[in-house]
């Protein structure tokens, strides 16, 4: 009897150990892929980084040097305007979904958001092209922003909803029991309590769209010159990487690598900020 039991335990222990190592191994594989990509980008890109990359405009073929100043400015403009549009809208929808969870209306909105998340970015770009670019008759930063805002909505909405749903209902009831209105208890109690999660949702949304190129092809289009006008076409980093990286010129390749490092650096910084504020604003109930 005893021996049988011991044998069983040995087998189970072996399985246990096996499972543990498989999990470790797969995790490591994942991590390795990320590290290799980062290493490759930095290896190629860091030598290309120099001051002129940040301060100069692109130069025509044949002239050495040149930078991505216009693309950085363009990206910043397009992404910030997109954030300005998407964050309030996304939070509002997130609140709606959290409040009305389980009701038919909320279910439908929730499915719509899921579908939106799955819509290919190129399609979003085309739709915005038809909606905005065509009527206005010109490619513009604004239309790029609208396209990116649509891309940003799903993560912002989902994060807001998830965060608010996790806040205990009793907190809102406590506010209501004090005679507060629904609006006040949401704005003054729920949102501040969930600010960490909502904020990280916004940042991840921004990180997600910062590297998008497809929707911008139809909208912001690209511009070899520096432009601050939101109603005019602007350049953007992903587009520079796309255009220059696929060009036959060595010089342009260098600029594309530099742009990649800037973009990746931007995303990494965003993630670090998210982690920092998440722990900072962590609210215990």
């Amino acid at each position: 009897m005893t021996t049988i039991e011991i044998a069983g335990i040995k087998r189970r222990k072996f399985k246990d150990t096996m499972f543990k190592y498989i999990v470790y191994g797969l995790t490591f594989t994942c991590l390795a892929v990320v590290l290799i990509i980062l290493f490759y980008i930095f290896q190629k890109g860091i030598p290309c980084l120099n001051w002129s990359l940040f301060s100069q405009m692109p130069k025509p073929v044949g002239e050495s040097g040149g930078g991505v100043l216009n693309a950085m400015v363009g990206s910043l403009m397009v992404v910030s305007i997109a954030a300005l549009i998407a964050i309030p809208l996304g939070i509002a929808v997130g609140i709606f979904l959290a409040e009305k969870r389980g009701k038919p209306a909320a279910d439908r909105v929730s499915i719509a958001v899921d579908v939106l998340q799955g819509v290919p970015s190129i399609v979003v770009g085309m739709v915005v092209y038809v909606w905005v670019v065509k009527p206005l008759g010109i490619f513009s930063a604004l239309s790029g922003s609208i396209a990116l805002a649509i891309m940003m909505l799903p993560p912002v909405i989902k994060n807001t909803e998830e965060t608010l749903v996790l806040i205990p209902n009793t907190l809102k009831e406590a506010a209501l029991a004090l005679g507060a209105s629904d609006l006040k208890s949401t704005m003054k109690i729920l949102l501040p309590t969930g600010i960490g999660g909502i904020f990280s949702g916004c940042m991840l949304g921004i990180a997600r769209v910062a590297g998008e190129v497809a929707p911008l092809l139809f909208t912001a289009f690209g511009n070899p010159y520096l432009s601050f006008n939101i109603l005019k076409p602007v350049n953007s980093l992903p587009m520079v990487i796309f255009n220059y990286g696929s060009s036959p010129y060595e010089d342009w390749h260098r600029i594309a690598w530099g742009g990649s490092v800037i973009l990746v650096g931007f995303v990494i910084i965003l993630n670090v900020i998210v982690k920092f504020f998440e722990s900072r604003w962590k609210v215990q109930f």
Binding site: P168, T170, L171, E173, G179, I189, Q284
Partner: peptide, 17 residues
């Protein structure tokens, strides 16, 4: 009404922020 009739809940629920 709720200002006249206050309520204390089962679990302590101070506003965490």
């Amino acid at each position: 009404l709720r200002r006249k009739v206050g309520m204390v809940f089962q679990r302590p629920n101070p506003f965490p922020t």
